[in-house]
Amino acid sequence: MTTLLISDLHLHPGAPEIADGFLRYLEGPAREAESLYLLGDIFEAWIGDDHRGEFETGILDALRRLSDAGTSLFFMHGNRDFLVGDGFAEATGATLLSDPSVVELGGERVLLMHGDSLCTRDEAYMAFRAKARDPHWQAQILALPVEQRLALARDLRRQSGEANSTKAEDIMDVTPSEVERVMAEHDVRTLIHGHTHRPAVHELTVDGQAARRIVLGDWQPNRGWEVRVEPGLPPRLRDFPLRP
């Protein structure tokens, strides 16, 4: 059976083409797969499981239909949807994964990550990441009224955009030594992640052995990205049209 992995859709009501393409994906290719892994930043912002407008409810309902149809669904937090919790899992039938996680795909141990923790040269972001993943900080944010959380999400997106506009390109990419370190730590030869929006397959050496890092792309109004794992074949990165 096929396993699919995707990330960085950044779903929000202002990008209906991507949302519609994702819904078609859930009703089509994902229905034919044994498993679907969502590796973070599926939503542009997620301010808590208790806030579900019409848009969010439509996405959650579609994910539930997928899991009810027999496709195993897994979710890993990204830097945009780190507040996804047990309520989301219950509503969709998804299993929440820690970042990083090692899973077996096609008979091989594969390391899955969102990818932001690999960008260690971006010291300002790494400081924010440490705060945002702190359970106590998250509890404080979730205790705020919805309107305050919405405003905070808007501010964080604005600040992120302004900060990234002045950063060097290499700072926002992964640190090669960190990639090698984490792959060696988990004793794997394949790493799949998103976050950087730089889809590619990188060949490298880890502990003297050939290895590869597969980077998922971010979805655009006319194009999606996936890693497809089929029996007897190595993971394959591919893009595909979102429009019928």
Rank of each mutant, 00 (worst) to 15 (best):
I141L: 15
G93M: 06
L144R: 13
G208L: 05
H186Y: 11
L105C: 13
L96I: 10
S72L: 06
L105W: 07
A69F: 06
R154V: 05
Q140F: 08
V206N: 06
A139Y: 12
S117P: 06
Y125G: 01
P100W: 01
S101G: 05
A130I: 03
S177W: 08
A132H: 10
H186E: 08
A89I: 12
H114E: 10
A139C: 03
S117Y: 01
L118N: 09
T196G: 03
Q138T: 01
P145C: 01
I171F: 03
H186C: 03
A132I: 13
V179W: 01
M76E: 07
G208H: 11
W137R: 00
V146F: 13
H77F: 02
G106V: 02
E123R: 00
R133G: 05
C119Y: 14
M76S: 03
R121A: 14
F75H: 10
Q138R: 13
M172H: 09
R154K: 15
W137F: 14
V102P: 03
L152S: 10
G85Y: 00
D173Q: 11
Y125N: 02
R157G: 09
G106L: 06
A130L: 05
R157Q: 14
L191Y: 04
L97Y: 10
P135E: 11
R189A: 06
R80Y: 05
H114K: 12
H114I: 08
N164I: 05
T196C: 03
T92F: 13
L83M: 09
G161P: 01
V103K: 15
T95D: 12
S177L: 11
D86S: 04
A91C: 08
P145T: 06
G70I: 01
Y125H: 00
L111S: 09
S177P: 07
V179M: 11
V206C: 05
R181Q: 09
S101N: 08
A143H: 09
D122S: 07
H77S: 07
L156C: 15
L144N: 15
L118S: 12
I192N: 08
H77L: 00
G161E: 00
A89E: 14
A91E: 09
H77M: 02
T166I: 11
F75A: 14
K167T: 01
S101C: 04
L105S: 07
A69C: 07
L156D: 13
D187T: 11
S98A: 15
H193P: 04
E123P: 00
